[in-house]
Nucleic acid binder design. Sequence first.
RNA 1: GCCCACUUGGCGGAAUAGGUAGACGCAAGGGACUUAAAAUCCCUUGUCCGUAAGGACGUCCCGGUUCGAGUCCGGGAGUGGGCACCA
Length: 853
Amino acid sequence: MSEIHLIYEHKKIESYWQEKWSQKNLFSTNNIKNPYYVLEMFPYPSGRIHMGHVRVYTLGDVLARYKRAQGFDVLHPMGWDSFGMPAENAAIENNIHPREWTKKNIQNMKTQLKSMGISYDWNREISTCEPEYIKEQQKIFIKLFNANLIYKKESWANWDPVEGSVLANEQVIDGKGWRSGAPVEKKLLNQWFLAITKFALPLLDNLSELNEWPENVKVMQKNWIGQSIGAKLSLKIKTNKIVTNTDMIEVFTTRPDTIFGASFVAIAPDHNLSKQLAEQSAEISNFIKEWKKSFISEEDLDKAPKNGLFTKLYVLHPFTNKALPIYIANFVLSSYGTGAVIGVPAHDQRDYEFAKKYNLKINEVIQNTKEKQNTILQKAYTGDGKLINSDFLNNMTVNEAKVEIVKRFEQKGIGKKDIKFRLRDWCASRQRYWGCPIPIIYREDGKVLPVEQSELPIELPEDVDFSKGGNPLENHPTWKFTRCKKTGLKAIRETDTLDTFFDSSWYYLKFLSPKSDTNLKSKLIERWCPVHQYVGGIEHAVLHLLYSRFIVKALNSINEIDINEPFKGLFCQGMVCHKTYKDETGKWVFPEDVVKNNNQLIHKSTGKKVFAIKSEKMSKSKKNIVDPVSIIENYGADTARIFMLSDSPPERNLDWSNSGIEGSRKFIVKVWSYFNKLKLNDQDIEKTASPENNNSSDLRKQLHLCIEKVTKSLDNFQYNVAVASLREFANYFFTLTLKDNNILHEALSKWVIMMSPLAPHLAEELWQLLGYKNLVSEQKWPRYENKFLTEENINLIVQINGKKKLIINIKKGLTKEQTERIVLENRAIIKIIESNNYKKIIVVPDRVVNLVI
RNA sequence: GCCCACUUGGCGGAAUAGGUAGACGCAAGGGACUUAAAAUCCCUUGUCCGUAAGGACGUCCCGGUUCGAGUCCGGGAGUGGGCACCA
């Protein structure tokens, strides 16, 4: 029999089915009977997709297609996080307008995303730089402004000298700009802040309700918010000859129970009192000057020695009336708590180090009850124990003492319970052009006012000059000059633009009304939100995800929205990694330039030795990027998708390998060739629908096992296991033909439906080869039936002392006694128990029998 | 330093409730087809002993609970991530 040599033309096949889906408008929904909102973090339009995008969008698409097959009304939109620095850099470097550059990039990336065959509803496409988006965002800004949740304040900002802009705290990594890598400087600026700290407690508390979020993300947010429960306490300054307008110092402590161990008070160098003292003392002002210099280099903070300067002032201990010296100390932060601490060297490591250095008393007040330790402390003891040397607190536990001492503070009117957070308000000002304009005017009479609703959106001027550096909006000849609509008074526009994290903190709401005004109180939001499943990188664990939660809570608190959390389910995928190589000089080498010669790695063209470094996240600088566009071109989207889903669990890192992508391709071609050989027409379908015979019962069992495994794996985000189960079943049916199995057609049909979320183009092609005229993307997900899974016989494991000795195939459902008899009558077992009388027998019916000898 | 996660063959990884460890794939080796190669197909592949039948060991290390532990508990090591003078 001559066989026609077939070639799997992925380009033709994939574009054909993409066109079909689009014609049928298959992925568009306006039904909200059974809503399921799948969202992947939208990309910055850099112009080219990378493997990280391929992975996250494949994962999201599998879920969207799977849920659609299960009968959900799936919302699966895509848009563009299109404001931000790179567009402005491109404008400066290539003399192209940011808008033009961005639009071109969006076009390119959209084409690339479309070639992946993802089931997006492109009718809902949004872009954060468009007027419709800006308008809604400015409305939100004004709402928050009017509710006093946005305010302006002068503050030390992290100034990135390369970007020429401020950075949020979380955009500073190791004292360097997160994007530019330049050392960050301190600069005093008047900037807009969002009052996220007002929501610190609900942001923290509601984490426990997010039970479909990964635990590690919640832990990161918890640490980021950083709640400390303690007490604040006012201490009276003993002699106040020098300072006239301060006679109390307020301190915050989480260990009020150790109050009797206090031996000093330390204040921050930029504490108010320090500033006042500096005016009168050259020594103090010099100390502060020195501190300011070291303030800029923030590295090795823990290694930095603890320095302090005695102010010659004392406070009075509130209970013993003893005088405690006041120090100005470099380890006290003005930005946390009250900028002043009470030093208890015996029970705080920092205080301990400080006390050792300046010869201050170390008074032990907590006794470790578990281990008897020497009174000569080697380091501070911070654990639990019994209070000693503490007057009325003696013999209490730490927790009892905390409660009691706060009571005493309150009685004396000197302090009370207090909670502090590490979280800082969100600085949302950027001194940049390519961002959402802040809808605020400064009127000539000094009033700071939001722009009138009717004037929205405030758009960016198109004619800008980037050549001068600095903020182009500030430098624009006319844009910022305006008038107050109500009074006609002259006014100047705010020239700062918004941090792009503001743009991305509410975009999931905009998808619900992409083309019209967004009504935050609409039924649409109530029905579709919170997003059922959000998918994205863990790098956004605290920034984007916390800001989004805050925006929703802030709007909710002023009754502008009815939801309280933006994302019900969250999934964080791992990175895509690839081998890296370095040559002897330490320079990165492209993996494709490395060849193996006599068991040594050498550079293809130079012949020099190279060394394999571990697999790392794909990045340009490490030269280990694999371009998805060329992979899709050469292998097809389905091959790329299958590779992305195989082997590694989605939450872990995925190692790119050429053999892996080849393997995926082989699988696809093999399946397709098999279906081609079976090719059917309508009549054949009817023929195969003959009554079942014995031959097919095993196939049916295997099929239902496969359906069960795939369904459960997909439900648990174990996409690698789903692929494995689908391949396992394929290995089984590859050996079958329609002639000898009358339910093969049905089995293959169900298998193809299960393949369709993973490799949708291939699945459509196979569906057609099975003789169907409709689309597999419209089919219902198959159900597994337990009646086909129940087996007549099972393999009973027989163990001796817990070690597997024998497997007996017996009838399922036998009683304990029946099972025991079968085992004890088994010849091999008799042999064993004849020589060693057994002491005990454990029988778990249908599973295991264990003989103890 | 503090907090969290992870550790299973040569590699990526499977393993409802503690009950056949290594599914599925990659790599490797052998064979078939071919003038040859590629492609494809078939077989082998945790380690050790044994010609074999078979046996012993084996899920980072040490200990515990249990008839039975990759899975539960205690201690330790290593890797990765987050926070880091936060009082």
